[in-house]
Design a protein around this nucleic acid. Sequence first.
DNA 1: TCTTATCCTT
Length: 484
Amino acid sequence: MISSCVWPSSYAFTAVIKACAELSALGFGRVVHCHVLAFGYGLNVFVQASLVSFYAKCGELGVARKVFDAMPERSVVAWNAMISGYEQYGYANEAVGLFCRMRDLGVEFDSATFVSVLSACSQLGAIDLGCWVHKYIRSHGLKLNVVLGTALINMYARCGDVSKAREVFDSMKEHNVGSWTAIISGYGMHGYGKEAMELFELMKSRGPTPNSVTFIVVLSACAHAGLVQEGREAFATMTTDHGLVPKMEHHVAMVDMLGRAGLLDEAFQYIKDIDSVRPSPAMWTALLGACKMHKNIKLGVQVAEHLLAAEPEIPGHYVLLSNIYAMAGRTDRVEVVRNMMIQKGLKKQVGYSTVEIDQKTYLFSTGDKSHPEATAIYQFLDKLMQRSRAAGYVPVCESVMHELEEEEREYSLRYHSEKLAVAFGLLKTRLGMTITIVKNLRMCEDCHTALKFISLICNREIVVRDKLRFHHFRNGSCSCMDYW
DNA sequence: TCTTATCCTT
């Protein structure tokens, strides 16, 4: 168009920029941006919004924000594009922050705004804001379409309230594969395998045809609830009844399911059969986790060696192997693994936990003393652990063995981030109130045990969302029934 | 014209 000397309209630009966004064609998009300025469309609101969206989708959030900030007048679409960009790239706090600014400025929201904000709430476990959005939607009579409804289901499930998620699902007039998948996944995350399977049956009898994602979710639900037979059947019907070809994700879920159930040899054979065709470290990782869970040192070491050869740069593999050695009391091997990590310059991912109190989110990391009330929190936690010990709690020395410095070991075990967050939550909330913690990694066995005791001695319900799933602690036991 | 979700292992 340009070489033919035809003057492009703003419409031509939005279309091309949108195409660049979909292709993640950053370089070409930049050139188009130059043309936008050359042709004098730099101040066109539609073109600007498409540029914000383009840069955001390409992960260039700083540039997107520059274009966004430079807009003399911002349409709701531009706000949405910016919020969505932050959310998609994991900057949920920034997404929420921008949403709050929008609210303060009195900008009118639309359903796209809410979808992105609800996803951000899901990431953060920010149920208070999520509920606020839900109330706003209801009080303003906004129509609950499938996309918005699914975002709500997802928010409630990931923020710990799966029955609310179900209410939303039931109240929706229209369902598609996505909304069914979302609610099944929600039950699965909470360890409610039976409910997940009942819904799956209902879906098959009177809902839309399940797709590949649905089966990942179903298999994962089975894996976390010990429903091996159900999982096997679902996997089989995937091909026979639905003509779907199992992808690597399904195989990983199958290995995970067999491994968690203690069928380690079968899981091992399963991998060998598939790995010869398509090698997949993810399957080995799942098996390694299972070896640790069932304390099978011999197989674990074998699997870990295989895995380290395939993916030498992933710190998590070394951590798992070292944990396995630690459980076996092989301190010498723990040292070796630790030195391998140091040599490769690999660092353990830093764990942190957040707790929301009065709509404010507080973040704790291991041994964290940055909180102004740190002294009180630590003292209270020490007292809690003392009382737990009196009630029968015995510390589980497992992952600690891996800490770099000698004195850090005991220290970091005692002050893992979730314990600090729980102590703070107990100090700041009244009896009868549930404490909800969001953690970026999986819980360690010691914290899991400790929280069971804390729930008992304090007579409190504690909900922890770890990287993968939910734990509801009540009266000294956990909803996962110690089956992670 | 520009904006909107559902998934596995660590």
